[in-house]
Simulated scan of single mutants.
Amino acid sequence: MDDKKVLENFRRQKIATIEQLVQWLKCSVITVRRRLKEWRSLTSINQNGRYYTLPEVPVFDPNGLWRYQRVLFSTHGNLKQTLVAMINKSARGLSAVEIARLVDLPFNSSFISRMARVPGVKREKHEGRFVYFSAGPEIYTLQQHARASDRKGAGMPTDSEAVMILVELVKDPGIGIEQLATRIAHQGQWVEPEAIRAFLERHDLVKKTADTRQ
């Protein structure tokens, strides 16, 4: 298969491994890596970086993430660079749970805990949870104020967040509250499960979720 046909196949399949590309190109691993560099391909930030995609294929969400068949790609670089970028971009910092949901890591992942030692990030404990903030003084202050306001506020989703919740509930009436939070996080917003629960209870929708005790 020549390069043109390989690229067509690559775009159609969306993602590929080194092993697949070796078979398509009938060449060595070294040559495949050279081609990937020429094509400016992106490497997955999960699945041990085994997967590649062409730069024109992904449609990235507001967090700069794209998922395909449980494989995750980022506009920010590797996983560590991605977490730093998302923490600095977030309005109120990100808890370990929020980070885990965004990048499909276990909540107790050691990778997340190591972010406390990464330049540009600072970690603090808020209401029993570790929260990761920007180390930049100005952003950090804004994030702290936003998180404090969340605690003082009514704890209800905004109108746009409420629409997202209802859309997901219509798509999947049996969805759980934690799953709702995850789906919305994948769309670039974070809504606390407690806020989702309060919204559903106010509108008598809580019975429609699969497990309101989550």
Rank of each mutant, 00 (worst) to 15 (best):
Q179H: 05
Y68W: 07
K171N: 15
L105A: 00
H203M: 05
D2V: 06
V71G: 03
V57R: 08
G153T: 05
S74H: 06
A85T: 07
D3W: 08
R92V: 06
N9M: 04
E161S: 13
R151F: 09
Q47R: 15
N63C: 08
Q143R: 02
V84W: 04
L180Y: 03
D172I: 04
F199C: 04
R147V: 10
L72V: 08
K4D: 09
A96V: 06
E201H: 05
H145D: 14
Q179L: 07
L65N: 15
M115A: 09
Y140H: 15
I184N: 08
A146F: 02
R11N: 08
L200R: 01
L205P: 08
H203F: 07
R70K: 14
G174F: 03
P106Q: 11
G153P: 15
H186A: 05
K207L: 08
H126P: 02
V191A: 06
L166Q: 06
A154R: 03
L54H: 12
H145P: 10
L79S: 00
R213D: 09
V131T: 12
S109T: 07
I15W: 01
F111G: 02
R123D: 01
R35A: 12
L54K: 06
V206S: 08
E161D: 08
Q214L: 13
Y132K: 03
A146I: 00
A148D: 06
A198C: 06
R34T: 13
R50T: 04
G64P: 09
L21M: 14
E138N: 11
N48S: 15
L65W: 09
S95H: 02
Y51Q: 00
Q189N: 11
S113R: 11
R101K: 08
V84I: 15
M1L: 15
F73N: 11
N46E: 07
E127T: 13
V206C: 13
W24S: 02
G128E: 07
F60L: 09
R202K: 14
I45F: 00
V84P: 04
I165K: 02
G136R: 15
V84T: 13
F130V: 00
I175K: 01
V29Q: 13
A116P: 10
I45Y: 03
I87E: 01
R123V: 08
S109M: 06
F10A: 01
G176M: 04
P137H: 13
K37W: 12
V163Q: 14
K207R: 14
W39E: 01
P137L: 09
K171S: 11
K208T: 14
R50S: 09
L7A: 00
A91S: 12
Q23H: 03
H145R: 13
A181E: 05
K4H: 13
A195D: 08
R70D: 14
Q47I: 10
R114Q: 10
M86K: 13
Q143E: 04
F111W: 07
R70I: 10
R202V: 00
L142H: 14
